[in-house]
Design a binder for these strands. Structure first.
Length: 767
DNA sequence: TCTAGCTCTGTTTTT
DNA sequence: CAGAGCTAGA
């Protein structure tokens, strides 16, 4: 499989080649939308390998697990899995969390610290605010957390916060106590042996700053550093890259300032704009040819982004055909908008023989998806929603994970609070607050108090005390499992013995069934995790390892079958990095895109414009932009206006509807306009417009589409050909009994040999 | 201690 | 409109 360096670069354009081959010093690759950025990155890594750099000396940092996985996959195709698996490749958060676990003792951490997600962090803050007797309406967890997060990403510690200018900001915002909440929050996380997302970066910075010998160790391991999506790094991440590159300066960052859309998470476009100041000897490469989209789409996007002042000048161009203009569609109501989008998709699909999966509908806010879903269901359009309530955010999944978390780390207060009385054990608020007070008084964990209420003089009656110890004893049993068994067995034990499944089995409501299925799905993913680790030579992958990874996963990372024939629905943010033949952007209205919160200052307005730019540039062939004249918001119908961003697009690239009410309409020659729009509307059966589906259906969608293959299990034998949801076509090569289930070995055409648990594996029999 | 039903309120994007 | 928080009653 190994290729030599000339093979690797033979298919690249000359500017891509240049960027790939320059590796003597720092480089900045400005990669326009659709310019083959990932290709350059993967080829560069393969090229470095072919020049003799060992894989373990290369580190590649991305923002999503998905991006990392895809890149690894592509590199594996060039150099083989053995080598690709030894690359240090992953998100900032995952790579640095691994380093922190490794070096935990230096920082006085336990190496099996838990990672708090945003929800855990908010709950912690909420509890602190309550405890401090502050007004919960003024000190809202989301606001306080974003302040703390900003501080951490700027590397301002809790003590340093008191003398920073952030205190003044808080004072003017009438939330002067944030500084004290920050201190209490840090203490609370310490007490819980927990790190939040920002801590993973923050403490790695502390580690490199305070322990030069550790820094040097990693500097010499990571001899070449690559960073994807550099426009999205925050100060903390920027500094980490700088630390690692300090010695050898062999760092290559790739990004597009025009696609910076994560400033709300601390991303600072300045980091890419000033890269050359950080590394004066840096070489800059620009990839300006767009291989993805038609000339009209590129033209429309260019004319839009040209309205932004703060950007690196570049001229993205396409040499594909002109294609169709960007079409603007207007609707009278948000409900109708959904139907117009549905109709547009149906028509285009029939006319051009597209597949459902050639379409994606993008929107600014998750809430917009509902009406589009309604329209899709009425028109029998299969779809898949990404984002929204993510799998790992579902209550039952979080509950199970909380049991696992507490079993790994009994200090974890958020996990404790979550499950102490779920399923109900008669331990209510009264008892719980007594436990809180006592724990605080003794400086012990909640779990310690619950384990031995009498020793702590907890003022509860004997019945309550035995309820507490009953819970603690159960967890103690889990603790043993967690350290002795592999991840799947431990998780299975915990799930069966925690009472969670019994709780959901009590009544067979649709919700309970869905919950049970999600728990099974989680268990299945734990099993698959074990198998993947075994392939890498780890004999007993523990649940501790699993948890450390799963905490950093998001819904995008839940494997979905690639060849799935469905329309994609997602937010524009989620769509970054993806491409579809046809893109439909919904709700392109004032106060939605740009959002109502971003119209006040130029900086955030420019970010919203970049967001629209990202949306348009996802399209390969056709791009539709829709807006509605009225929209339900907060339960009230509001009149809305088309977005100013539509006006930003040059008229030569766009088709506006006859009734367009934006600025452009006044200078637009209506005689040029095709009367296409009214035809569409007449196709809509208005009697169907009102959505009448029960709301629950939305939530159950996932459960209903799960293709559990239990019915066909009995027919599987050696030689059976199957079509797996993720791995594609494969042939069964072996069967074996395994803990009340069958374990099958399957040789896949494209995914190698894999062991699957029959109960969980999602496949259909081909022959 | 639990739950059903009421009122209130707030609205973005997510590693 | 939907989710959170609160209250009354079981």
């Amino acid at each position: 499989m190994s290729e030599n360096s000339t093979d690797i670069i033979s298919d690249l354009s000359s500017s891509q080649k240049e960027a790939v081959m320059y590796n003597d010093g720092p480089s900045l690759i400005i990669a326009g939308a659709g310019s083959g950025k990932t290709r350059v990155l993967t080829c560069k890594i393969a090229y470095l390998l072919s020049m003799g750099l060992p894989p373990q000396n290369i580190i590649a940092l991305t923002f999503t697990n998905k991006a990392a996985r895809e890149m690894k996959e592509r590199i594996a195709n060039m150099v083989g899995y053995k080598i690709a698996n030894r690359l240090s490749m992953g998100t900032f958060h995952s790579v640095f969390s691994r380093i922190l676990r490794q070096e935990a003792s230096s920082l006085n951490f336990k190496s099996d610290f838990v990672i708090y997600d945003t929800g855990d962090s908010k709950n912690t803050i909420k509890a602190i605010v309550k405890e401090m007797g502050l007004d919960e309406k003024v000190y809202k967890p989301s606001i306080v957390l974003s302040r703390i997060s900003f501080a951490k990403n700027s590397l301002i510690s809790a003590p340093a916060y008191y003398s920073s200018k952030l205190v003044d900001n808080d004072f003017f915002a009438k939330i002067p106590m944030v500084k004290d909440i920050y201190s209490a929050y840090v203490a609370k996380l310490k007490q819980s042996s927990a790190l939040d997302f920002d801590d993973l970066l923050y403490y790695t910075n502390v580690l490199f700053r305070d322990f030069p010998e550790i820094k040097e160790k990693y500097q010499s391991i990571f001899q070449y550093i690559l960073v994807d999506e550099y426009q999205d790094v925050n100060f903390s991440q920027h500094l980490l890259v700088k630390f690692l590159a300090e010695k050898h300066h062999r760092v290559c960052v790739v990004g597009d300032d025009a696609q910076s859309i994560y400033s709300f998470r601390g991303a600072d476009i300045e980091n890419i704009l000033t890269f050359q100041q950080t590394y004066p000897e840096a070489r800059v490469f620009k990839l300006e040819r767009n291989y993805r989209s038609t000339q009209n789409i590129v033209g429309a996007a260019n004319s839009l982004i040209a309205k932004n002042k703060n950007r690196i000048k570049k001229s993205v161009f396409s040499e594909k055909e002109f294609g169709s203009k960007v079409s603007v569609l207007s609707a009278y109501s948000d409900i109708e908008e959904g139907f117009i989008i549905a109709n547009q998709i149906i028509r285009l699909k029939e006319r051009n023989q597209y597949k459902w999966s050639d379409f994606a509908v993008l929107y600014r806010t998750n809430a917009q998806s509902r009406l589009i879903e309604d329209a899709f269901r009425k028109n029998n359009i299969p779809y898949r929603i990404y984002g929204g309530v993510s799998f790992y955010q579902r209550k039952e999944v979080k509950d199970v994970l909380a049991y696992i978390r507490l079993s790994i780390n009994t200090d974890d207060e958020e996990a404790f609070k979550r499950i102490i009385n779920f399923p109900a054990r008669g331990i209510g608020d009264t008892t719980l607050s007594k436990v809180f007070v006592t724990a605080k008084e003794f400086g012990s964990s909640l779990f310690d108090v619950a384990s031995n209420p009498l020793n702590f003089n907890l003022s509860v009656n004997a019945g309550t005390a035995s309820k507490l110890t009953g819970f603690a004893d159960m967890i103690q049993k889990f603790v043993n499992e967690v350290h002795e068994k592999d991840a799947y067995e431990a998780a299975n034990f915990i799930i069966r013995n925690s009472g969670i499944t019994t709780e959901f089995q009590q009544s067979k409501t649709a919700e309970n069934i869905s919950s049970l299925e999600n728990i099974e799905e989680l268990l299945s993913s734990i099993f698959q995790y074990c198998e993947a680790r075994r392939e890498e030579g780890i004999e007993t992958p523990t649940i501790i390892d699993f948890l450390s990874e799963v905490s950093l996963l998001t819904d995008q990372d839940v494997d979905k079958s690639a060849e799935d024939e469905r329309v994609t629905l997602m937010t524009i943010h989620l769509a970054k990095g993806l491409e579809f033949k046809n893109i439909l952007i919904a709700g392109v209205e004032e106060e939605l895109l740009p959002s109502i919160y971003s119209t006040e200052n130029e900086k955030s307005l420019e970010e919203e414009r970049r967001l629209f730019y990202v949306a348009i540039t996802r399209a390969e062939e056709n791009c539709f932009v829709s807006y509605s004249k009225t929209r339900f918001r907060n339960g009230q119908m509001k009149y809305t206006k088309s977005s100013r961003f539509i006006d930003d697009i040059d008229l030569e690239y766009v088709n506006l509807p006859n009734d367009f009410n934006g600025k452009a309409s006044s200078i637009f020659d209506f005689s040029q306009q095709k009367p296409s729009f009214f035809k569409e509307k007449s196709e809509i059966n208005t009697s169907q417009v009102l959505p009448s589906y029960p709301k629950k259906l939305v939530k159950l969608e996932k459960a209903n589409t799960n293709s559990t293959s239990n019915q066909v299990n009995l027919q599987v034998s050696v030689g059976t050909k199957i079509q797996h949801e993720r791995f594609g076509i494969g042939e069964v090569t072996a069967l074996a009994e395994a803990a009340g289930d069958m374990r099958i070995t399957v040789k896949f055409e494209n995914a190698g040999e894999r062991v699957l648990l029959l109960k969980f594996a999602k496949f259909t029999i081909v022959e």
